[in-house]
């Protein structure tokens, strides 16, 4: 078993517990073990709290990294925002002057950041530690015929020098992970576009979402697969808002990758939260029916 310190963040445990459930159920099937970090706080988020005070943001991120250092385990994150914060903090703290500054703050709570652990997005752990072949072998019900559009989101890939996940201009990891489930990945014209969640405006994100959802509809994808809970909320609740605003029905259910993996591994459909979504992936219901009769 390969063991990691699990950093679930805020959004998944506090808003989308089914995603956490799916991760905890699927990873052991891939030979990956998770150890909790009970005292961990918000990463903190790379959009809002970072905008208030980057040095405080860095100090709290460093505290979270220290918790994993105590256990001597690399961190695995399931949210692109947490990955962005913790990876960037680790990168910035390589600077001696900044590290000294942050360690002065950490000394107030008797901690010290040493720089001993890595931060890995769950997608890279599955790719590099388990491997695509292991994913394929863990599948009990191939998702054959399911056309899956992909939204990579921004912080999984960029800044690429810090994230080191994949080529930001031509990433492959999500396509490969979807293919491993027996489903068919489809790339749409706006695959690279941001979900717009962080932009403090109404018009810009609405138009961005409309463009993404339109191209996903053009390629006749059944679902939109993503790997970030923030993008998920944008494409679930946000899709309802955008649909009303433009008087269009995009009918593009968003699905978090590990929920899809869980379904393919034969984990009970009703525990995966699909029925709690605003835009429900009804097509997956059929797959479950096939599975229970298999």
């Amino acid at each position: 078993m390969n063991k990691f310190a699990f950093f679930p963040g805020c959004m998944i445990p506090a808003r989308y517990p089914h995603m956490e459930y799916a991760i905890r159920k699927t990873l052991p099937n891939l030979g990956i073990e998770l150890e909790d970090l009970p005292e961990a706080s918000c990463c903190p988020d790379p959009i809002y709290f970072k905008s208030k005070d980057k040095l405080s943001w860095l100090s709290i991120a460093a505290r979270n990294l220290c918790l994993a250092e105590d256990k001597g385990l690399d961190i695995v994150t399931n949210c692109s925002g947490c990955t962005a914060t913790l990876s960037e903090a680790r990168h910035l703290l390589e600077d001696e002057e900044l590290r000294t500054k942050v360690n002065k703050r950490l000394a107030r709570i008797d901690r010290e950041y040493k720089g001993e652990v890595r931060v890995r997005h769950i997608v890279t752990v599955v790719r590099d530690v388990a491997g695509y072949e292991a994913v394929k072998e863990s599948v009990k019900c191939k998702l054959e015929g399911l056309k899956v559009a992909i939204h990579y989101g921004c912080h999984l890939l960029k800044p690429s020098k810090i994230m080191n996940v994949d080529d930001p201009n031509d990433p492959k990891v999500m396509e490969a992970l979807i293919t491993a489930l027996g489903a068919t990945p489809v790339r749409h014209r706006n695959w690279f576009l941001c979900c717009g969640k962080a932009c403090q405006d109404e018009d810009i994100p609405a138009n961005m979402m409309r463009d993404i959802l339109s191209t996903v509809r053009d390629v006749e994808a059944d679902i939109l697969c993503l790997i970030c809970p923030t993008c998920f909320s944008q494409f679930d609740h946000g899709q309802v808002r955008v649909g009303k605003r433009f008087g269009e029905d995009f009918n593009t259910p968003p699905v978090y990758y590990f929920q899809l993996l869980a379904l393919a591994q034969g984990i009970q459909y009703e525990n995966l939260g699909f029925n709690r979504q605003r835009i429900k992936p009804k097509i997956l219901d059929k797959i479950e029916t096939t599975l229970s009769h298999a």
Binding site: I47, C154, A198, I204
Partner: peptide, 8 residues
């Protein structure tokens, strides 16, 4: 505040 924080 219009920045989308996309890092492009």
């Amino acid at each position: 505040w219009l920045c989308t924080n996309c890092y492009n």
